[in-house]
Nucleic acid binder design. Structure first.
Length: 702
RNA sequence: GCGCGAUUAGCUCAGUUGGUAGAGCAACUCAUUUACACUGAGAAGGUCGGGGGUUCAAGUCCCUCAUCGCGCACCA
């Protein structure tokens, strides 16, 4: 028995992990082409099995959620590869437009600089260098988790071919009349100076004062007095008897913020007579619903609040005041002095949309922006779900998905930031406010065209990810790997990402981009709270792996966490699986000490322990195939520890006859196989002491 | 306001077509150098949030209530 020296002490993950990963990666077998080339018997005729990995933002370090994400995908990928599929786990990174720019702006702020006033090219270059540097960090951290990704196909959203493909999609959509440019209300963040899509805003409950002011014969209730300065329409419900003396279009004069103004009465059934006073004035430029009413009746719209949240010239002497703070106070003061304040409720609860990054309240603004018409696209995406083409691993998310598809809101895809893919549009003469534009990759003939400065919403490019990373619809990879099998990502992306990918997949390739959708929960801290830098409760997967080993962390993330449910991560849990990994190590020592290669011969498959194992293996196989990894990992754990170690070994120990040695060796090698997807490092390391021919990575999972 | 999820052992959570409750951690007793103390053996711990219903049988299906969490929603 030449027991290798390393087994004389407990398992040391840090001595092993990077070496094993290098060994596996350098084998080339993460690449499905190499699987076919090196093991034609096993792979040449087999089906492909593909999962596109979510592009982690190339703007920071990995967090525990990423570790879960990578672990789940890698477990299934390794399992499928062992089973004999041509597995492609396709990595990529996202430039994460707005996200990254926000991070970079914070960095600039710390350095006492600002993006505003910076040269466009200079800013872009700085963020580019910053992102590339971070991308390398992120990639190396993903590798530490053990991700068996095909790095030869690694893709970045700003790679030349992705950029041109994304632009072509936009051009094609424009030709198909799915793109329009228009002055429409949009979500404006006055801090970041850009518009945002609906999914980039969050709702926040605030307690504020709800004022009622007298306006002529009407009482007007509002929580935003500052927007009322330039209002000149009073809207009531057509059948509201209280206002019967006024007809639609009647005018009257009344004292208001800036003196006596003329008001017009508008009757519209979108008004709820029960709410407030049943009458309201509208501010079309700064409110979505008011905009709809104004548009419907062809009313005037004016900009009272500028892009920085301050009053424009229209506010007269109040010009330049911050609207939501000093401006509001001033307006209330003026109306109160005039005796027009008739009531106020200081405990009024309301929901305001805020920027999801900085929590600055969104100030709706009318802006010329690029929009995608969502109705027909959403309809096909809804149909796909209803036809059962999408398999949500936890079905609760199907409802959410379908709800979103049933209520599509046109998608604002233009961002006023430099970090991203510049929209391929050109304006004539007057600059970017020009009505006349051309869409195409090249500048049109003539000198007087200037290019649009806005960039695409980052989800416009990452939404095309399954198609784009495979090289778009004409490429060989696309034909070979599309549609993919599994989309596994965080449940928080059910709106931002999943629907876009389905829509683009159907639009560009006429087929859903993936069949199974596995949405994992969020990784929470030991108290069950969301991890965040500001709370200081972030648990780094790398730090945890340094302390307990990556195999232990992988187990801790998987065991007992059902698909779609959040899990809270504790050091104790990771430590428990470190013990498990070490247990396996000790079992290996025992097997190596008591058996040798000569025992690798035919065994009696009627042996009670072998039959029992078959049963367990069948269960584990079934559970992985159904994405029930939390069950499969638990079964594996219990088999190894409480069946194999506690029962089989204890029994054989008493009577180490040749037949038992054979069974022992056989079962242990089988254990390495079933454990490998979950704990690849330690199993691969032990495997090399049993079987030097091939990596465990491609061993048969029968 | 609408929707979704959760409520199971002290803590964190499993429990996939309904069939007499499971794991890890913690705590308790014993074993004292065993392949492994990063160990082994054993015991303890739950009226599965409350109430009602369907069923031979309910943690599991239905109704209802409560508490917590999350998402969606342009009520001025």
């Amino acid at each position: 028995m030449n027991l290798p020296e390393k087994y004389k002490k407990p398992y040391e993950s840090k001595d092993v992990e990077s070496i094993i990963y290098e060994k596996e990666m350098n084998s080339g077998l993460f690449n499905p082409d190499m699987l076919v080339q090196k093991f034609p018997n096993k792979y040449a005729e087999s089906a492909t099995w593909t999962s596109i990995t979510p592009p982690p933002n190339a703007n920071g370090r990995l967090h525990a959620g990423h570790a879960l994400d990578v672990t789940l995908k890698d477990i299934i990928g390794r399992f499928k590869r062992m089973q004999g599929f041509q597995v492609l786990l396709l990595p990529g990174s996202d430039h994460a437009g707005f996200e990254t720019q926000v991070v970079y702006e914070k960095k600039l702020e710390k350095e006492g600089r600002s993006r505003f006033g910076m040269d466009r090219e200079q800013l872009y270059k700085e963020i580019y260098d910053f992102t590339i540097a971070n991308k390398d960090t992120v990639t190396s951290e993903i590798k530490r988790i053990g991700a068996s990704y095909d790095w030869s196909r690694d893709t970045f959203t700003l790679d030349e071919k992705i950029v041109s493909g994304v632009k072509n999609t936009f051009i094609k959509m424009h030709e198909d009349r799915l793109i329009y440019r228009g002055k429409r209300d949009c979500n404006w963040c006055s801090k970041h100076q850009t518009s945002l899509s609906d999914v980039e805003t969050e709702k926040k409950e605030v307690v504020t004062t709800f004022y009622t002011f007298k306006l002529g014969d009407f009482n007007i209730a509002t929580s935003r007095p500052e927007t009322k300065i330039t209002d000149k329409y009073v809207v009531v419900h057509p059948t509201d008897a209280r206002f019967a003396k006024y007809n639609h279009g009647d005018t009257f004069e009344a004292e208001w913020v800036l003196g006596i103004s003329t008001f017009t009465v508008i009757k519209d059934d979108s008004i709820d007579p029960e709410f407030g006073t049943g009458a309201m004035t509208i501010t079309p430029w700064h409110s979505g619903i008011d905009f709809q009413i104004a548009k419907k009746h062809g009313l005037d719209m004016v900009q009272l609040i500028d892009d920085y949240g301050k009053f424009t010239d229209l506010a007269g002497e109040l010009k330049g005041l911050k609207a939501t703070t000093l401006g509001r106070e001033k307006v209330v003061e003026i109306l109160t002095e005039k005796g027009l304040l008739v009531g106020k409720d200081e405990k009024y609860k309301t929901i305001v949309p805020v920027c999801y990054k900085c929590e600055t309240p969104i100030e709706p603004q009318l802006k010329d922006q690029w929009f995608v018409k969502m109705e027909s696209l959403a309809e096909t995406a809804l149909q796909a779900s209803q036809d059962g083409k999408l398999n949500f691993i936890s079905d609760q998310y199907r409802k959410t998905y379908e709800h979103w598809m049933k209520n599509p809101i046109d998608w604002n895809i233009s961002r006023q930031i430099v970090w991203g893919i510049q929209i391929p549009a050109w304006f004539k003469n007057k600059g970017i406010d020009s009505e006349e534009f051309y869409i195409g990759n090249a500048k049109p003939e003539g000198d007087d065209w200037i290019q649009e400065t806005d960039t695409f919403d980052t989800w416009f490019s990452s939404g095309q990810w399954p198609v784009a990373t495979l090289g778009f619809t004409d490429s060989e990879d696309f034909k070979r790997f599309y549609p993919t099998q599994l989309m596994e990502t965080g449940r928080d992306l059910i709106f931002k990402w999943i629907p876009r990918m389905v829509i683009f997949g159907l639009y560009l390739a006429r087929e859903v981009p993936f069949k199974d959708i596995y949405l994992h929960g969020m990784v929470l801290d030991p108290k069950g709270q969301k991890m965040s830098k500001s709370k200081g409760n972030v648990m780094s997967p790398i730090d945890l792996a340094d302390e307990f080993g990556m195999d232990a962390l992988r187990m801790a993330l998987v065991v007992g966490s059902a698909p779609g449910n959040d899990l809270s991560l504790t050091n104790e849990k990771v430590r428990a699986y470190k013990k498990f990994v070490n247990k396996l190590w000790n079992i290996a020592r025992f097997v190596l000490e008591n058996t040798n290669e000569e025992d690798d011969s035919v065994i009696d498959f009627e042996n009670v322990h072998v039959k029992n194992f078959k049963k367990i293996k069948y269960e584990i196989t079934k559970n992985i195939e159904n994405y029930q990894l939390h069950l499969a990992s638990d079964e594996m754990y219990h088999y190894v520890w409480h069946e194999f170690a506690d029962t089989v070994i204890e029994e054989f120990k008493k009577d180490m006859i040749p037949e038992n040695k054979k069974v022992l060796r056989y079962l242990f090698k089988q254990i390495l196989i079933i454990a490998h997807p979950f704990i690849p490092f330690v199993t691969e390391e032990i495997w090399s002491d049993f079987e030097v021919k091939n990596l465990l990575l491609v061993e048969d999972w029968e």
